[in-house]
Design a protein around this nucleic acid. Structure first.
Lengths: 199, 199, 199, 199
DNA sequence: AATGAATGAGCCTTCATTCAT
DNA sequence: AATGAATGAAGGCTCATTCAT
């Protein structure tokens, strides 16, 4: 039962819990959720099999925690870029920064990205978590842009769409490697789209 | 072993093979790859468990075939819309048609979409197949647009990007249901982006 | 799911199912329910681990089947003795026959007896099965005794009680081996009680 | 190892040991031996997991101690009733008192009764303890009855048998609930048997 | 070419017991 | 004497794949 899961209060315990999440993060990224066994997670985290179930209800529970970190790792830096952008906004520059950062982040997380999205399809809790965290980020970004003088009309929709486009492009760049695509040119095109969007 | 996989020459055999692929298609869509057992595929296809391994090397081999159909089902109708568009092109109208069609298609295939992309991450063969089939479609569309008078500069990149944006939007619409998003407005925004892109 | 349990229709399958039940019977008798693993059951039955779950929903399901056989093995012979007793009834003789038979049967089943009764405590389905099958036997015996001229007053209660006393005595004889008890004398005492009961 | 088990000399320690036994008693009664974990026993006893192994060699060792209490709780009150019965004995009254008391006791201990008997089957030490403690009680009762003027012929056998019958009846009453049995009538029958037995 | 029963390796999870503090 | 986090062996069960028929 979930209620029997230990809530670590001491630092050492929290550290151990984080080690397990980190191990899950890595393994889910490398070989996917179904390619990872709990025994492997424990081994990589340097703990015993049993204690994993002291910190998590089950394997899926680890995934939920990994998802949380993933979202933070992937979206938060982008939100930060927006937040720290100088005013008045140089949209072109901001777009480029966001694109570069997203590509960089995606390089480290592309596989996990797919794994998580696939599981969201099957698992309602994962899906809910995803939606919830995405909401938070969208909201955060929208408010920052508004504050920095961007036109508020349909802003939420625009932000959401922009995030999707950027993600999509980063994914393309990092992952698909269609060799007939000139990604540098594509980046410029995406950049223009973003600038037009928020002008 | 793959080498022992029968290549069905007779009509009845081909029909049976297709039934298995169709069953795989449905089940992978409904409950994902890992939620589907080969026994279930056989049952749904109305064949015996054993014969599945007469037509396919293994479970993954079925997935590869499902992927082929998926790409056809999802991209071909869009390519057709472009191909059948009247000249001179009414870009706005074309964009709307494509968007509506994509949403419609995505409604039937969203889960499979995620499943396939996730597996592409882990499985090189699946990934290769994906890239290969996407290339084909991109190429096909680009040539059509060119023929219909669209500016050829960076066309491949633009087509690819457009497809990603459209997919992304359709996915958003069908799947995520962030309740603060006004999808009708978002659709208009996407439409404008597309029109601008190919103007 | 229980619904996926194969219902064996062919003789060979039924034979195999019975082998598994028999293996369960033996192992549960020897080392108890919790001392038995499904792998051991399979091994003793001469089948694979997997196929056990083709015939039974789970380990407990095997137990339920074992219970059925147990009841038949232990009660039915007693019911038969009553049924075949010559009329007019020689109560003393009948009592002795029943006692001897019960001891004989208990020698083979004492351990399982305890195991099953203990599980009935924890497992509602096992308990229900037990009660149900005991009812059947009590009813059967009562009707036979009535037919053979035994006084019908409170007959069901008497039969039930008699069965309990006989069981209890057999258990004592076979199992407990309190060395200060003279079981031959005890048998006579029990015999007298039974004769008095149905006189 | 058993040799490392602390023999508590100080009062506080003895108290703690008893708390653990009590917790074991309750849990074994409620959910059986295999349904109880040592962690739960410790928790219910209000002690740490580790210290349980300071007082007991292993889980089974707790059971042995629970068994001791059980026997005391279940048989001693009956021995007391016999001991305190007025002379000359009113056998009918004594039998009724014993029956009522046994039912009352069984209501609190039926599950544990089964659990213990089942384990006695598999575990020699448990069985030995059982036999030993039953001997003590039988002996005690026999001497009391003799003192109060009951015929000494085969008295041990009769006492043992009587205890079995009474237990069996109480178990039936408390536990089985065959709904076609009139337990009030059955009680009268049992009472008569007992009176006849010691007359 | 076809069947579907059978195989058995492997997975998630539990829990009696230990041990660092 | 006491704590409770940690260990890891072992169990129930699943399912991709094989094979006798």
């Amino acid at each position: 039962m979930a209620s029997t899961v230990r809530i670590p209060q001491q630092e050492r315990s929290i550290e151990k819990k984080n080690k397990i999440i980190q191990a899950g993060y890595e393994l889910f990224s490398e070989v996917g959720y179904y390619g990872t066994t709990t025994v492997e997670i424990a081994k990589r985290a340097g703990v015993s099999t049993g204690i994993v179930y002291g910190y998590f209800a089950d394997k899926r529970d680890i995934l939920i925690c990994v998802l949380e970190i993933y979202i933070d790792k992937v979206y938060q830096p982008l939100a930060d870029i927006v937040e720290n952008a100088a005013t008045p906004l140089d949209l072109n520059r901001l777009a480029l920064s966001v694109l570069d950062k997203t590509i960089e982040l995606h390089e480290q997380n592309a596989k996990l990205h797919n794994t998580l999205h696939s599981l969201a399809t099957t698992d309602e809790a994962v899906n809910a978590q995803f939606i919830n965290l995405e909401n938070k980020i969208t909201d955060q970004m929208s408010r920052q842009l508004l504050k920095k003088g961007v036109n508020g009309e349909n802003l939420t929709e625009k932000v959401h769409l922009a995030m999707n486009i950027v993600q999509s492009f980063a994914h393309e760049t990092v992952f698909d490697s269609h060799n007939y695509i000139n990604y540098a040119k594509m980046k410029n095109i995406v950049c223009n789209i973003l600038v037009e969007l928020f002008k």
